[in-house]
Amino acid sequence: MSLDYLLTILKPMLEGAQATILLFIIAIIASIPLGFLLTLAVRSSIKPVAWLAHSYIYLMRGTPLLLQLLVIVFGLPLLPVVGDYLVLDRFVAACIGFILNYAAYFAEIFRGGLLAIDKGQYEAAQVLGLNRWQTTTKVVLPQMFRIALPAVANESVTLVKDTALLYAVAVPELLHFAQTAVNRDFTIVPFFVAALIYLLITMVLTLFFKWLERRMRFE
């Protein structure tokens, strides 16, 4: 195994990693706010809204992400009448799948964060004269995000690894190029290179969240 060989496979693999990272960024940026909105919907006093949000979360968490991706990428275009309008670029379709799925997980995480806030916090805010909106934005949400942070970090690392599912819907990404090189060159090395790249990404992510947690420690 030579350095030259490493360099030749590294180039396409890093290009593949771009798709991986792009998907990760798009999914995380969109699914966190969406998940938060879902949390609010679950807690809505309007019953049908709460029920819909609940069912949505249940559906997304109760079925495999891979199945959801296959449905969006390959299944929807087969629908009668509307199917023709649902033929999306596969990468775009996959992004939508990830966003819809991860929003449900983040919603659960935020809901847990809300439940962990002591009822005394609401009472103190009320007696001090804060209205509902002020209580939510100034007292509840800052604490909720802090409580949710470790779980959000965890989920983000999982998301990095789940991007490998792009492989199954034939979007070229990191793992795809690794597999191609393995088949072509009859060597295991590209798999290790792929593993190292995933590790690098998750390490950066973990360090970022550690830093964020330290900043928000309230000490």
Partner: peptide, 15 residues
Amino acid sequence: SKMGMVFQQFNLFPH
């Protein structure tokens, strides 16, 4: 609003 309250568990805002 004419009344203030002090709780057994303090209920300070930790953040």
